[in-house]
Write a protein that binds this DNA or RNA. Structure first.
Lengths: 180, 180
DNA sequence: CCAACCATGTAAGCTGTTACATGATTGA
DNA sequence: TCAATCATGTAACAGCTTACATGGTTGG
């Protein structure tokens, strides 16, 4: 029952594999050709990560398919355990300190089947972002904040605005998903 | 002439020490009590980092002061080499892929003496953020982007908005600094 | 036939995290 | 005197980055 031996790169891989079974190389390509690249750079990290997930029994490689497209080890599939672990991760709470990871999760929710999770996510994302922004504004108004050099205060203001933009995004995303 | 053996935590430490000489403990406190905490968590990283900076000759501990406030090793000061290295870092270009580090740098510029650097920074920060946002919008409009699941597209939109908020912050910061 | 791309990895090194360990001093 | 805070570290471990190494296949 050890809860989290899986890193965010691991979850990214699980999510992509859940979307459709892929080879290690195809996974690398996704990171190279999409903004998801910010979650990893190439080979040296993803192959070891895949090996780790396989060792944990969350994915397995199958020489899947009648045609010989599978040159290497074949396509990775989620095992039932992998599916369960990924599902649990998807349903977890939004951590205010790590909105980037939260967004990764969001990108793997499916408009069709996960509607309830999506609504819950957006609500708690908005709340978390608003709260973080509030914390920073409070800091700025407090003793330490007022004593900081101007540049530092401006930098903190940047953080506030980032969080506020995040909260606004959540509101916007809700309207988009409603009028779909 | 090995260019960059200093990490962003290292630069954060150099910057804080430049603001005023401090003990290792005082530096830890800054990370614990300000939003700068996002650049590190405690002891296990900052003491080794300080040791590294000392080994590189960028800082040195002095039993500075007539009164015995210095219980431990004393206060860390920048050496001339440290001052030069930090100054060079401050004057470097804004890397679009790492706006967080850029913001750390910004927070250490001084409204009094670094006016030229500040103006240059804000201009190039705005440009970088705008460009990153544009890249993401272009991606969304392209083949791969249009083929992605809705959730993923919304997540990318989040990224756009973050960058756009960054660009807007830069514009705002310029007006603040002008009317000072 | 040669370049590009498919496909998979290994190895060294650095950084950071967590958790533990220690001891002096100050204030209630 | 007892807890909190000042003050400094170490050790084990995990993860990522960079760079290198290896081969098969396909298209011009």
């Amino acid at each position: 029952m050890t809860p989290k031996p899986v890193t965010s790169l691991g979850y990214a891989l699980l999510g992509l594999i859940r979307q459709q079974p892929r080879t290690g190389y195809a996974l690398r390509k996704v990171f190279e050709t999409t903004p998801m690249g910010s979650y990893s750079s190439s080979p040296g990290s993803i192959y070891p990560a895949l090996a780790g997930l396989e060792r944990l029994g969350l994915i397995e490689a199958r020489d899947d398919g009648d045609d010989r497209k599978a040159r290497g080890k074949g396509l990775f599939h989620l095992t039932p355990a992998g599916s369960a672990a990924f599902g649990a991760w998807l349903a977890g709470p939004v951590d205010g300190k790590d909105l980037t990871t939260a967004m990764l999760r969001f990108s793997f929710l499916r408009a069709g089947s996960d509607r309830a999770l999506i609504d819950a996510f957006l609500d708690s994302f908005e709340a978390a972002a608003t709260q973080q922004a509030g914390g920073l504004r409070q800091f700025l108004a407090g003793e330490i904040g007022r004593a900081m050099p101007l540049q530092s205060r401006l930098a903190v203001e940047y953080g506030c605005r980032q969080f506020e933009a995040g909260a606004q995004w959540a509101v916007w995303a809700k309207t988009v998903l409603r009028g779909d």
